[in-house]
Amino acid sequence: MSLRATARIAAAADGSLPVLHSDGPFALRRTRSTDGSTRVTVVGAMSAPLGGDELALEARAEDGARLTVDAAAATVALPGRTAAPARYRVRLSAGADATLRWLPEPLVSAHGSHLRAHTTAELAADARLVLREEQVLGRHGEEPGTLVSRLTVTRAGRPLLDQELAYGPGAPGGWDGPAVLAGHRAVGQLLVVDPDFEGKPVEPRLLGDSAAVTPLAGPAALVTAVAGDALGLRRALDRALAALAPF
């Protein structure tokens, strides 16, 4: 039987959590923060997503709030009893003068799985966002499942970024070729939205051999990176995070 679950988080400017609702595989825990923000850690309560599951996680930083959401472990997409794809939606929002840091652990696409993930973020004009996505294509020594991942971001009601990536069986040809992953099995991105970039735009540049910074048409920068494994990917994105997001 497929699972349907939605977990919700809302953080207020005074540091409180008016909403902290766990559901299904998402056990939400308030944890200690080292930077003064309100921090919530997502703890996996069961194996998910499996084929046919429909999961959602919503996080909102209300006006003036500072919210960090991270995770205790990686998410592993697994095959289920049905051939239907699993669906995982993340809905983020940040109000006026709010800061939202979305820093989950990697998503692992296990062999035989089929996952469609869609992250949306709606930001006020002066909100700040740090969003990290890491995808590992297959567990050690195995081929990946099918993974389709879309990221849609709007700022002050206007589109900032809308992109879709697809890997594994059934994905458009060439996803593993020299023009895309070139044999790498870990791929990720870091999106930083900061009103301060309006006065000092980010310059496009390479970060080492396998990561690049691209300024977006707005006060934002997108870092894309590939690596041979999850550890190498995290190191590349951590370097980018330290350089781009002092907040």
Rank of each mutant, 00 (worst) to 15 (best):
P104S: 04
A124F: 01
V193Q: 03
V202G: 08
P172N: 11
V193S: 08
L107P: 00
A182Y: 07
G173I: 09
R30A: 15
D14S: 05
V202K: 04
S22E: 10
I9S: 00
R60N: 02
A121F: 00
G199W: 02
G141F: 03
L78S: 13
L103I: 09
L28W: 08
L78F: 10
R60F: 00
G36K: 09
E164K: 08
G44T: 12
A110N: 11
T41H: 03
V42N: 00
A86G: 15
G24H: 09
A61H: 02
Q189E: 11
L123H: 08
G138R: 07
H111K: 10
D229R: 09
G170Y: 06
F197T: 10
F247G: 15
P172F: 07
A245D: 09
A83K: 11
A13W: 01
A94E: 05
A242R: 14
P104Y: 00
L123P: 04
A127I: 06
V90M: 00
L222P: 07
P25E: 11
W175L: 09
Y167M: 11
Y167S: 11
D23I: 10
R32Q: 14
F247W: 15
T68M: 09
A59L: 00
V90S: 01
L50Q: 04
A96W: 01
V43L: 14
V108S: 09
S33V: 10
A182W: 08
A10T: 07
G157I: 13
A230E: 08
A73G: 14
L244P: 12
L137H: 04
D176T: 10
R29V: 15
L28S: 12
P219W: 02
V42L: 03
S113G: 10
D209W: 07
R205A: 15
L216C: 05
V90I: 09
A127W: 02
R66N: 10
R155W: 03
R205G: 14
L100I: 02
T146Y: 14
S93D: 02
D53M: 07
S16R: 11
D35Y: 05
S109N: 02
G36Q: 10
R185V: 04
V130E: 14
L67P: 03
T75Q: 14
S47C: 09
L17K: 05
V40Q: 01
P172T: 12
D209S: 14
A56M: 00
H114N: 14
A243F: 02
A11Q: 01
D126T: 15
A74N: 07
R234Y: 08
D238T: 13
T68P: 08
E142T: 15
E134I: 06
D23S: 15
R66G: 14
W102P: 00
A240G: 12
S149Q: 04
A61Q: 01
A74Y: 02
H111C: 06
T31E: 15
A13T: 05
D70Q: 06
G24C: 09
A171V: 04
V69F: 00
R29C: 13
T146D: 09
L3S: 10
R155I: 06
L17T: 08
H111F: 07
A124R: 03
V19S: 06
T152Q: 02
A86C: 06
E203I: 12
Q189C: 15
H21T: 15
A13M: 04
T152E: 03
L107N: 03
L191D: 06
V108N: 11
S210F: 13
G199L: 04
A121Q: 01
R116W: 06
L131E: 03
T152S: 04
L233A: 10
V193G: 05
L100N: 00
P215Y: 02
L231M: 14
S37M: 10
R239C: 09
